[in-house]
Design a protein around this nucleic acid. Structure first.
Lengths: 132, 132
DNA sequence: TAAGTGTACTAAGTGTGTTAATACAGTTGA
DNA sequence: TCAACTGTATTAACACACTTAGTACACTTA
């Protein structure tokens, strides 16, 4: 279900947050669908339940899932509504990265076509890391 | 000369590498220009000389500067040639970030205008049209 | 020679991520 | 009711990377 990179600078729980967020936004995981329990997922990924728990808590804080004690954790509806705070963060990151790209010699045209490609394949596609 | 973010996840030495690389690529620091000594810069930025040293070593490894014992560290010529490895990395990051932006509701048009703005203000502004 | 440069090394402190082991509280279904 | 599942919380320990600190050495330059 997931591929995690232990060698990454980004911590496991955060990678997990990203993956799940993507699946939720992309509606691979649908509203009110139940997520694997912290213990189950921990066993599947051979990592500690506390790490899963940390990811789930973060996702709940960000409003992507909701957890009910004794029942489980579930995907929230309407999670793809614009999160202005998140948008600002992404825009800021994008600015820096685009600048870097331009400095490196990647042309604006290259970027335009990259965007249009990504936009075209948005709903159905898979990106570099595929699921399994 | 620099702005460092202590609160950032990215280590100081790496922020320093990025800043200096940008200045070099953008030719604010010109070929064979001498960089501040590790001790001087450390004092200016009120961080440890070893951290500067680490940044300089990294920059030398990546070919952006060269250091001569007893003399100092200097900007390398021809460092702005395309670093394909770095370009690939930036492109990969860009893809993910653009996807995230699109999912968040930032439109492709927004991204286009962002790019053109950044490109216009890039270097102090000579180029506009025939950039390929 | 003195003062500046890069370079190397060890030690210690710090913060964060991760694992581990427990424990408690709520829900569900037999 | 009760066993087995859920989420949640806490504490301890470990690992690792970043950073600081101090010291030392080799080299260059005025």
């Amino acid at each position: 279900m997931f591929e995690l990179d232990i060698r990454s600078r980004k911590p496991i729980y955060e990678q997990l947050v990203d993956k799940l967020k993507e699946l939720i936004i992309n509606e691979v995981l649908k509203p009110d669908e139940q997520l694997p329990s912290v213990r189950t997922l921990a066993q599947q990924l051979t990592i500690n339940p506390n790490t899963i728990q940390k990811a789930y808590r973060e996702l709940e804080t960000q409003g992507f899932i909701y957890s009910v004690q004794g029942r489980g954790s579930f995907v929230n509806a309407n999670t793809y509504v614009k999160d202005t705070e998140k948008m600002a963060e992404v825009k800021s990151k994008l600015e820096k990265l685009i600048l870097e790209a331009l400095y490196l010699g990647i042309s604006a045209e290259d970027l335009y076509s990259l965007i249009s490609e990504l936009e075209a394949g948005k709903g159905g596609g898979q990106n570099d890391d595929s699921n399994k």
